[in-house]
Nucleic acid binder design. Sequence first.
DNA 1: TTAGGGTTAG
Length: 693
Amino acid sequence: MKEFKQVHCQIIRSGFADSPAEQQHMICFCCSRGTGDMRYARLLFDEIDRPDHFLWNTMIRGYSRHRSPEAAVSLYIEMISRGVGPDNYTYPFLLRTLNRKLAIEFVDELYAHVLKFGFCSNQHVQDALIHVYSICGDMDTARELFERSSKRNAVLWNSMISGYNRSKKYEESCNFFTEMEKLRVKPTLVTLVLVISACAKSKNLPYGAWIHGKLEHWGVVPSIALQNALIDMYGRCGDLRTACILFESMEDKDVITWTAIVAGFANLGQVDHARELFDRMPERDTISWTAMIDGYIKANRFKEALEIFREMQVMGVKPDAFTMVSLLTACADLGALKIGEWTRAYMERNKINMDVTVNTALIDMYSKCGCVGSAMEIFEKMHKRDKFSWTAMITGLAINGDGEKALDIFAKMLGTSLKPDEVTYISVLSACTHAGLLEEGREIFSNMINIHGILPNVTHYGCFVDLLGRVGQLEEALETIVNMPMKPNSRVWGALLSACRVHKNLEMAELSAKQILELEPDNGAVYVLLSNIYAKSNRWEDVGRIKDMVMERGVKKIPGCSQIEMSGEVHEFVSGDRAHPKGDKIYAKLEEMGRELKLAGYAPNTSEVFIDISEEEKEDTVYRHSEKLAIAFGLLSSCAGATIRVVKNLRMCLDCHKAIKLVSVIYAREIVVRDRTRFHHFRNGGCSCRDYW
DNA sequence: TTAGGGTTAG
């Protein structure tokens, strides 16, 4: 522009400024992508008395190129109101610049203009209209336009297939391609990329492979984009062998090629292999890094996900909304509140677009860090919510023990046009469970079937059994399991078993435990429970038999593991752990805790220890449980009064639950422990779970 | 001196 302005001066001084040819050239330059300046273009444009079609069109396209769709629309309105009729070129430029919001607002009106000015038989105009209707998600109208079009070339077919892909109707995309084949319309490279992508998304390996096999027959020389789409398709469909053969055979690979193969391995859980390829990449962009972060998250390796994000920042690669969602997911699973909040601040600082998905990820993160109030704040501030946002909010309230509020939110959701799905119902039923709302739960279970036509799956039955069990309706819970239309899984029996433990029904507990062990002979925790049941009724022979079974089957209990975030770093403890650099100080704190607890009248509860050791050793074992270590570390490393947040991989044991209630009084701290299924908010000697978990 | 369709991530 700097050079251009000098030339502009020369033109004025030489007296050519009024020449239409010069004016056109100058406006064209200002309207060009990247180097141009639309404000300058507009100044030049306003100098002209009666701009012709060409200039109006050029200006509209200029705004489009400079991502100012609103300005393009208002210029078009000005053009019409000044009595200049549009031409062939006007609508393709104008329609292609519309974003979803503007498209929904203006598309019908603009279609009417097209009809009124008589351009509906122009192929470019038809194609642009199909494009706009597909952005709006209105594929029916797009299809009508397509059917009505006189001559359908490959590009028009491509626009339809692209529209169906955009609406996630991948089967329709494939049907369209089949139809195209039948009518002998020659597919272009773009057609093939679109259809292969549809096969990838819908995991339609047979059709995708069939197309791949026909390429030679059609005389197609695959472009890089097509090869990339094929690698992606094979990767997503789980055929990594073919994906690798294609990958190795490519001479020219771009960053997408590499990302596709990395994502292929990452999505199938082979994250280490993905990492090897990732490290070999000659060039990486935001998407490649995000794919790698996602791989670690899918493999439940959250710490590494955060580590690679740090590396990404060190390398100066800018994260986007997708990266942030992945990161927030990792924080949610880790219970890493500080990093989660940092992520939120980062998005605000860097003006990363906070759309529905990002906000939903924030709700999930706050809820899973035990800050359901902050989750609620985000939820209430959202301008737009989808069913995922509602479901996330309901789940958040449920796991944090606020069942009544969760049902409130659910009632509000029913007042919108959004329909709850089966996942929403799992959240709602579990909200009833956590709050012990039996009658509400019954009603919801029946409404789900009768009003919303959702057939309950095994998880819904699990929630319902859990609900009945919690309020002590053990007979009905058992009846429900027996009458379920599908085979109960171990979690359904597990819900009954927990209820039996709390309501002390030894007989039914034995029955459920045996059922679980048939389904999951490796479930160490159940052997412990079963043995305790026998011990309580003095059936020592059975106790011995269980111990033999454990030895024989080589069952190992999953080690308990607790995490706590401190100064933006996640610290991990397993029971009896001494590996932490501050190990000595932590154990000193633990001893101090032990002394204080004894003074407060605490006696260890070792009923859940299942090893053949002396009582004293058992006490020593529960004393070193991972959550106690994490809390000792938390007390040691945070300032007085700060909330301590711990995430545990298993259910909390009775002893830890009892001890932590007392610790919350002794140290005047709020302690939040997330166990495998729910939250325990310990304060002033009590727990939000009301001792049922 | 103005026109169309495309690959990777939640």
